[in-house]
């Protein structure tokens, strides 16, 4: 992704087949593809090893098949967070006051792609693997906070969507004038609210040390997750901010022509 105002000319000419505002579309589609491979791969891993080696956390095989996966995830999450966030910050645009309208429009498209990738990760974390947790708890007695589904859901999926949400927030803050001048309330809500879902894992697992009831999903102990996900509604405000600015920029271009 081009990240400074000086790159406007090169970024608009680098792809002949795509219009200038969709220059980052191939990366966006590759992001979708990569995430799909990761999530489907993790589900296939569960299918292969959860029942055979994931029912009893005291068995050596559990350490081998599941705790090792957990450690690998921690390393990947740390690398991805520092890599993406570090890149976005270090390559920030230091000349935002000279940004051309066309380049700003392109960046709004790229921001929308970042948010879209974020919501794709929210889908896997909030929909598929979240409800799958109920399915697993109905067939396996909970004897550890690191179950075959928690290792993927709580300690990989949740941090990953937090990282991707953080990427969207940082991208806007470092590359778009309005988001650099002020802190967008809806974008902040939509990123930091779902982040609190990750924090709620602590409350949830602490609660389950008292109540290992397996598993009344609607129990109040889970409602911390629910409140966190309400903040995803902030995306409506991001959309309004984006559309308003795009209208202004398009008019500016038209007036100049």
């Amino acid at each position: 992704m081009a990240t400074t105002s000086e790159h406007v000319a090169t970024s608009t000419e680098s792809s002949k087949s795509l219009p200038w505002y969709l220059i980052d579309l191939p990366r966006y589609l590759k992001g979708f593809g990569l995430l799909s491979v990761i999530y489907i791969g993790l589900r296939l891993y569960q299918g292969a090893f959860a029942v055979s080696h994931g029912l009893d956390s005291t068995e050596p095989a559990f350490e081998q098949y599941w705790m090792r996966l957990f450690y690998v995830e921690l390393v990947i999450i740390t690398l991805v967070a520092s890599g993406f966030w570090g890149y976005l910050w270090l390559s920030r645009d230091r000349q935002l006051d000279q940004l051309e309208p066309k380049e700003e429009i392109r960046r709004y498209f790229t921001l929308t792609m970042w948010i879209s990738i974020y919501t794709f990760a929210v889908y896997w974390a909030g929909s598929y693997f979240a409800e799958q947790d109920n399915s697993w708890h109905q067939v396996a007695i909970r004897d550890t906070p690191f179950t075959a589904n928690h290792i993927i859901e709580f300690y990989f999926n949740f941090p990953l969507y937090v990282i991707l949400g953080g990427c969207a927030w940082l991208y806007a803050r470092t590359r778009l004038p309005l988001y650099a001048k002020g802190i967008s309330l809806p974008l902040t809500l939509a990123v930091f609210g779902p982040f609190m879902i990750l924090v709620s894992v602590g409350f949830n697992e602490w609660g389950h040390t008292f109540w290992f009831r397996e598993e009344f999903f609607a129990a109040p102990i889970h409602w911390g997750f629910v409140i966190g996900v309400w903040f995803a509604l902030g995306v409506g405000g991001i959309l309004l901010q984006g559309v308003t600015r795009l209208i202004e920029l398009l008019d500016k271009i038209e007036d100049a022509e």
């Binding site: 309005l178 988001y179 001048k181 002020g182 802190i183 967008s184 309330l185 809806p186 902040t188 809500l189 309400w230 903040f231 509604l233 902030g234 409506g236 405000g237 959309l239 309004l240 901010q241 308003t244």
Partner: peptide, 11 residues
């Protein structure tokens, strides 16, 4: 409320 379009000066 969540669809606010406000920009804040600090958080």
């Amino acid at each position: 409320w969540f669809a606010s379009t406000r920009y804040l000066t600090k958080i």
